[in-house]
Design a protein around this nucleic acid. Structure first.
Length: 216
DNA sequence: TACATGATGCCCT
DNA sequence: GGGCATCATGTAG
């Protein structure tokens, strides 16, 4: 418990290499917990720790966007690993995924929740929120739609972006933080293949979404 | 060309 | 705890 404390992050670091993503989405998802999502915008920096991830396995996974094969929308999932797949859902929200596995094989992870570290004012501004306490901090990035808005992630701007490029304005870095304990649960908000244990969260982290659904 | 649906979040009770 | 906004996408016709 108590991992809600904000850890200092003195430098954004460099993007995780493509080899990190060139694996099974379950391994990638598990290993992304504790890593840091970074958005560079001119001199401004936004950074937040990944505390919740879901794996989507591609054509063998009925819940995955890639389940029915390649379409114009999901083409990124079939491309090389380490690229952003951003889609628009429910007429309101964007969600950030990162492609996994070699070129030609679909698979990805969905980033579901973050713990804000740097650029909190900018995130609040993007979310249209005024921060009046630590409780409000959760509203910034606790949920896939929320974190996308806080990081200004849109399909137009980010879909298909290579997150492993050294000068990418969106990437994931490693600041050598290791979660003390990780939980595996069922995925949230889906109907097909809803019982598969493919959601990974940092145990006790209060920025995790859907706290009621913890099973393990 | 029409229609059903969804990897969500917010606001109201 | 539940209803609803809101629209891109895919599939059927």
């Amino acid at each position: 418990m108590g991992s809600a404390e904000l850890r200092p992050l003195n430098q954004p670091g460099k993007p995780l290499p493509r080899a990190f993503y060139n694996r099974d989405p379950r391994s990638v998802g598990r290993d992304l917990l504790g890593k840091v999502l970074v958005r560079r915008q001119g001199r401004k920096l936004r950074a937040a720790r990944i505390v919740e991830i879901e794996a989507y396995l591609g054509q063998g996974d009925p819940a995955a966007h890639a389940a029915c094969g390649r379409t114009p929308r999901n083409a990124v999932l079939f491309g090389p690993p380490g690229h952003a797949y951003v889609y628009f859902i429910y007429g309101n929200h964007y969600c950030l995924n990162i492609s996994c596995l070699p070129d030609g094989i679909a698979g990805c992870v969905l980033v579901r929740a973050l713990e804000p570290l740097i650029g909190i004012e900018e995130m609040a501004q993007e979310r249209g929120l005024s921060l009046n306490g630590i409780g409000d901090l959760r509203k910034l990035t606790s949920g896939p739609g929320r974190l996308a808005e806080a990081f200004s992630i849109t399909r137009e701007r980010d879909n298909g972006k290579d997150l492993t490029r050294i000068n990418s304005d969106l990437f994931v870095a490693d600041d050598h933080y290791t979660p003390s304990r990780v939980l595996t649960t069922v995925r949230i908000g889906i109907v097909k293949a809803a019982s598969r244990p493919l959601r990974y969260v940092i145990a006790g982290n209060e920025f995790v979404s859907g706290l009621r659904r913890l099973i393990a």
